[in-house]
Amino acid sequence: MDQLITYSLHLADTTLILAQRNAEWCAHGPILEQDIAITNITLDLIGQSRNFYQYAATLINQSAEAVAEPATEDSLAYLRTEREYKNLLITELPNGDWANTILRQFFFSVFQFGLLEQLQKGSDAQLAAIAEKSIKETTYHVKWSSEWVIRLGDGTEESHQRMINAIHNLWTYTGEFFIPAVYEKDVLPHVDFDALKSAWLEKITEIFTEATLSVPPASFMQTGGKTGHHTEHLGFILTDLQHLQKTYPGAEW
């Protein structure tokens, strides 16, 4: 049960932090149409994270012996600390430019699509149900971000160079997708992470080829997010995110 709670929180934190980052584009996008497009993705991710938090809260409230304050989606999102957050590192990195943002979305969405497919087949009915709803959204995120990778990779000289820089920035954070934490192995005994990784790499290669970009060779990969060892960025994200709840403890909004 504890493992399932932790895993749900990992999924919730990951989607929330990515949403929080993408939301920084709202009102600052490169053109109105794309401002609206990335904000749609942000809203999808917040929706997904709320579903995972609500599930985690239900599990916590069932398992705990008479806690005074039952857990809610907001208590989980707003009152946990940096070390308790279990999001993937890649989600907390600064947005950088549009190339960096859409490439991160592409890496993440392709991974998430494969993962959600597995969750649908998993033994936990609630996770399967959330996955079934989410995968329709993620299908679109993959399509949208793939097209941007191709467009920028095979666009102008400048956009191509910016994509190369983005790959350089982000690649080392993609390994974490496929290195399962203890709680993941426990909740997802049926998932072959190596197979997930091959499928991911295949899709990345396909799109990169069309985008005239090269896939970097296997190299050292950063990890830690899944167990609460984060980059220095997360603290600032949470300071922002949790500002009101921390300043006015116990208030309803």
Partner: peptide, 28 residues
């Protein structure tokens, strides 16, 4: 947009983002 990152609950955050996004649509 100034308060999106600091919205005090996930529900309020989603509402505020949707509202600001609507404004982009209206401008468009």
């Amino acid at each position: 947009g100034n308060w999106i990152s600091r919205a005090p609950s996930l529900k309020r955050k989603a509402i505020l983002i949707a509202k600001v996004q609507d404004e982009a649509g209206h401008g468009l």
